[in-house]
């Protein structure tokens, strides 16, 4: 295990940011800390980096008890949401910073910086200042800077949070490929479930200072431990007395047994997807049911707004009471 966290707690005044966190992060994996804003995931990451001190508990990095170590002795690479670029230094100088602090020989620094800039596709920008780069380029520079010190763990705090949607998606794919190349133990914080599901090997869901569930993306999506994980990892709706994902509902235009009867009150077409809103006839079920179908499925049903339909969970679909 690369990072071993035991009984970590942290308060800010009366606010409990983290409560009794136990977590093991395996070597060489890409782990996501996922959860809503203010849930404590960034605080946990900062405690691992030493930028924040835990009130209680211990942090072990690569078998060394790091709880009392200052950040500069932990050998972690940290990437900030807002890049934290050294504004007065060129891109190359930024990347070289950690190596210069370690007093490595000049030719070694030069070679390493060139190699890293190649890796993050910034070679032609080596002599620019950070202010002359786009957000995505700055974040790649920050990543190269963190990797330069060959950290035992790489920590990323909402690394793509400040970027626009398209760049974010590109960088996300790129981070995954980079990790496959470099294999450094990586922990990143995100509140975007799609990002976590797409990029990471394992996900730790954190909410209100506690860990809700730890598992692979498939585990969490298909076998959520509780209602919170179910609803945080994807869309969810109420069918009868159960929670279910809208794409796990089968729609029938003819009456079938053990199904919820309702009338289609809204029909929205979004690209390849059709979203239905069905109002159950049974007054006990107050909430309207959301159903999502592919365009082909929807047109095959031969129904439209105002039609009566019968809904039931698909075979093998996940439901929670």
């Amino acid at each position: 295990m690369s990072i071993e966290i035991q009984g970590v707690g942290k308060r800010f005044g009366d606010f409990v940011a983290l409560e009794n966190i136990d977590l093991s992060i395996p070597t060489g994996q890409l782990t996501a800390l996922l959860g809503p804003s203010g849930g404590g995931k960034s605080t946990l990451l900062r405690i691992i980096a030493g930028l924040e001190n835990a009130d209680e508990g211990t942090v072990e990095i690569e078998g060394v008890n790091a709880t009392q170590l200052p950040p500069q002795k932990r050998n972690v690479g940290f990437v900030f949401q807002h890049y934290a670029a050294f504004k007065h230094m060129t891109v190359a100088k930024n990347v070289a910073f950690g190596l210069e602090i370690r007093k490595r020989p000049k030719h070694e620094i030069k070679a390493k910086v060139a190699e890293l800039l190649e890796l993050v596709h910034l070679s032609q920008f080596a002599d620019r200042l950070p202010s002359q780069l786009s957000g995505g380029q700055r974040q790649r520079m920050a990543l190269a800077r963190a990797l330069a010190i060959e950290p035992s763990v790489l920590l990323l705090d909402e690394p793509f949070g400040a970027l626009d949607a398209k760049v974010r998606k590109e960088l996300r794919d790129w981070l995954r490929r980079l990790h496959d190349e470099v294999h450094v133990t990586t922990v990143f914080v995100t509140h975007d479930q799609e990002e976590a599901l797409e990029v990471s090997d394992s996900i730790v869901v954190i909410n209100e200072g506690r860990i809700e569930q730890i598992g692979s993306p498939d585990d969490l999506y298909d076998r959520p431990a509780n209602e919170f994980v179910l609803s945080f990892l994807g869309p969810v709706t109420q069918l009868g007395d159960r929670s279910i994902r809208p794409h796990d509902i089968a729609v029938s235009p003819i009456e079938i047994s053990s199904a919820v009867e309702g009338r289609i009150t809204r029909w929205t077409r979004v690209g390849f997807e059709v979203r239905l809103e069905v109002t159950p006839t049974d007054p006990r079920f107050e909430d309207r049911v959301l159903v999502s179908l592919t365009r082909a499925e929807a047109s095959g049903l031969g129904v439209g707004e105002g039609s009566l339909v019968w809904l039931r969970p698909m075979d093998g679909a996940l439901t929670l009471v």
Binding site: G50, P70, F78, F80, F86
Partner: peptide, 9 residues
């Protein structure tokens, strides 16, 4: 920036 510098050693 200062925190980044610290984490870099």
């Amino acid at each position: 920036q200062e925190q980044a510098a610290q984490s870099l050693g």
